[in-house]
């Protein structure tokens, strides 16, 4: 039987990043996963309420955790897959909070009883697609159909995959999971110091200069260290990085895309790629192949 995952898509993935969803699901399917979108799910809140006395702002997350619990029984899994790291962060933190704070769990249960919702019994496990890809990286390597020799990639983590510590998918100070995934499919990675620096988050709607400055720094530094591509897994980081790129007078030679776009490309899952992403990667691959083939032209 195929390994099953309960899929929580998230608002921004559905509304703003449909190609990210497509490539992520295609890669998981190629790995043999059965991904079932939850029949009902609710906006996680995008940022967890940090107030110790708050319950109402956790309700969207709690409703979704309950729904996953309900549907998980039939599917034989308790793993709730997120692709957006903001959703991952909020859902995982609310899940942890409810495990620690039984009083809040009871308060929420009492409130939701009106709607005949069962009390959450804390069984849902929130995971991010990066964690699934990392545990399957050997198999990913076996599924490679195209090489991207000579192409150098910088992985950008941002905040929510690695902070706070109790939901970090890897060492928060020096995460490696995305690089390890990329190397398992034969892609060269670039080290740079800003991979967990905040992109500016929601300031892109309110204090745009902050998002443009931070994202611009992240992009130019990675480009200066020789990265052709910056991969991210977050719709908001992606938006801010592109926002910064558009606003730069001198464009750094670096392209932003989703990690799973790049994986889908090397795995030959072309239907899961936007025409722009695919033609960019085709051209880059050609250019680098010529470079590698020319004597003295390759530098790797």
């Amino acid at each position: 039987m195929a390994k099953a995952l309960l899929y929580y898509p998230g608002c921004s993935v559905k509304r703003n990043s449909p190609w990210y969803e497509k490539s992520a699901l295609a890669v998981l399917e190629a790995l043999g996963y059965r991904v079932k979108e939850l029949d009902k799910w609710y906006c996680c809140g995008a940022t967890i309420s940090l107030a110790a006395d708050d319950v109402i702002r956790h309700l969207g997350a709690i409703r979704s955790l309950i729904q996953a619990e309900k549907e998980g029984e039939a599917l034989g899994t308790n793993e709730m897959l997120t692709v957006c790291p903001m959703c991952y962060n909020v859902l995982a933190r609310v899940n942890n909070l409810l495990k620690r704070d039984r009083e809040k769990l009871e308060t929420a249960a009492r409130y939701l009883r009106d709607e005949n919702l069962e009390k959450y019994s804390l069984s849902t496990r929130v995971i991010h697609v990066v964690q699934v890809l990392h545990r399957e990286r050997e198999k990913l390597g076996e599924l490679v159909k195209r090489r991207l020799d000579g192409v150098r990639v910088a992985a950008y983590y941002g905040c929510t995959l690695v902070r706070p510590k109790d939901v970090a998918v890897d060492n928060p100070e020096s995460p490696r999971v995305m690089e390890e995934i990329l190397r398992s499919v034969g892609i060269e990675t670039v080290e740079y110091p800003f991979k967990t620096l905040c992109c500016g988050a929601y300031h892109s709607v309110y204090r745009k200069n902050i998002a443009v400055a931070n994202s611009g720094l992240i992009l130019t530094d990675a480009a200066a260290r020789g990265a052709d591509i910056m991969v991210t897994v977050c719709p908001l980081c992606h938006y801010n990085l592109e926002l910064a790129y558009r606003s730069m007078a001198r464009k750094p030679g670096i392209r932003v895309m989703y990690l799973t776009d790049l994986l889908a490309y090397v795995m030959g899952l072309d239907d899961a790629l936007s025409p722009e992403t695919r033609s960019f990667l085709d051209k880059l691959r050609e250019a680098r192949r010529e470079l590698v083939a020319t004597p003295g032209g390759g530098n790797s």
């Binding site: 608002c11 906006c43 809140g45 940022t47 702002r57 957006c84 903001m86 988050a201 929601y202 938006y239």
Partner: peptide, 14 residues
């Protein structure tokens, strides 16, 4: 134009 998560986060924080 902004992604929903930026708008929701800004709403909740501000």
């Amino acid at each position: 134009e902004a992604p929903s998560l930026a708008l929701v986060a800004a709403s909740r924080k501000l």
